[in-house]
Amino acid sequence: MTSSEPLRILLIDNDCQRADLVRNALRKEGHEVISQRPDATGLTAAVARDEPDMVIIDMDLPDRDTLENMSTLNAHAPRPIVFFANEPGDRATIQAAVRAGVSAYVVDGLQPARVRSIIDTAVARFEAFQSLRNELAQTRTALEERKLVERAKGLIMKREGCDEDTAYGLLRSSAMDHSERLVVIAQRVIDMLAPGGSHGSQAGSEVKRVS
């Protein structure tokens, strides 16, 4: 998604006249309101059904239900969210909206002359946040996989009476032989040798096979 592309927008606004102003301002910038809802109830399901590129919410202040629905959306089907607040909110309210996934929080409602810059800012912030979130998820995954490999090495060292380098070499060779990721082999070893897994001669033969 780029801010220069026409966006398909889900609009939340319970004021028809105000919604028409928002719709017209967005249309002038090449964007399309594909769906309008009076409130954020069922927001995640609505996004799954309509597949908008962005969600715009125009209301006085974000209430508790709106914040909860935005948080759910941000967790399961994140989209850039622009919130046009028609009343000034305190710092805590704005922070709560940002934590719920709002990419741009605009006080005093929508002003047509600012639509383009607001949309651009929201998309840029959303993309930056998603990039950071993806990097964090990849880091966590890598850490968890490293823990599995380290545990598997420890089990092999104990079982086979070998050193760490040898245990790792056995894991790596098995991964190459089976055309599988190292962490898959590590999990297999853990399943066989960890307490509660396979024991005795069966476990011994399985370690030989896997390694």
Rank of each mutant, 00 (worst) to 15 (best):
65 D>F: 08
22 V>K: 06
146 R>H: 12
70 M>Q: 01
152 A>Y: 04
86 N>T: 05
57 I>S: 02
108 D>F: 09
97 A>S: 04
109 G>A: 05
84 F>K: 00
82 V>M: 08
180 E>H: 05
13 D>C: 15
202 Q>C: 07
137 A>E: 14
60 D>Y: 01
77 A>M: 14
145 E>V: 07
162 C>G: 08
157 M>T: 04
129 F>W: 08
184 V>G: 03
3 S>D: 09
56 I>R: 01
194 A>E: 14
104 A>M: 08
199 H>E: 12
21 L>K: 11
66 T>G: 03
11 L>F: 12
88 P>F: 00
23 R>N: 13
31 H>I: 06
196 G>T: 10
129 F>A: 09
71 S>A: 04
26 L>S: 02
42 G>K: 07
206 E>D: 14
44 T>Q: 10
158 K>D: 12
118 I>C: 01
125 R>C: 03
118 I>L: 10
79 R>A: 02
116 R>T: 14
38 P>Y: 07
55 V>M: 02
119 I>G: 00
191 D>P: 03
58 D>W: 07
199 H>M: 10
27 R>T: 12
139 T>A: 15
75 A>K: 12
150 E>P: 03
156 I>R: 04
84 F>N: 00
192 M>V: 12
62 P>E: 00
92 A>S: 05
4 S>M: 08
107 V>N: 03
68 E>F: 06
210 V>F: 11
67 L>Y: 02
192 M>W: 13
191 D>G: 10
74 N>H: 07
188 R>Y: 06
106 V>C: 00
25 A>E: 06
150 E>Y: 05
183 V>K: 05
101 G>N: 05
13 D>K: 11
140 R>W: 05
30 G>N: 00
150 E>G: 04
17 Q>Y: 10
57 I>E: 01
160 E>S: 12
67 L>A: 03
129 F>N: 11
18 R>K: 08
112 P>K: 07
173 S>C: 08
107 V>G: 03
69 N>L: 00
45 A>C: 05
60 D>L: 08
67 L>E: 00
125 R>I: 02
178 H>K: 14
38 P>F: 05
28 K>G: 14
133 R>V: 06
13 D>S: 13
28 K>Q: 15
114 R>P: 03
195 P>V: 10
137 A>C: 02
185 I>Q: 06
206 E>T: 11
57 I>V: 15
153 K>R: 12
129 F>S: 12
35 S>E: 15
15 D>E: 15
11 L>H: 03
93 T>P: 01
203 A>G: 14
135 E>A: 14
44 T>H: 09
47 V>Y: 05
39 D>W: 10
49 R>L: 15
159 R>L: 09
157 M>S: 09
148 L>F: 09
14 N>A: 15
90 D>C: 07
132 L>T: 11
140 R>G: 07
48 A>I: 13
197 G>D: 02
141 T>A: 11
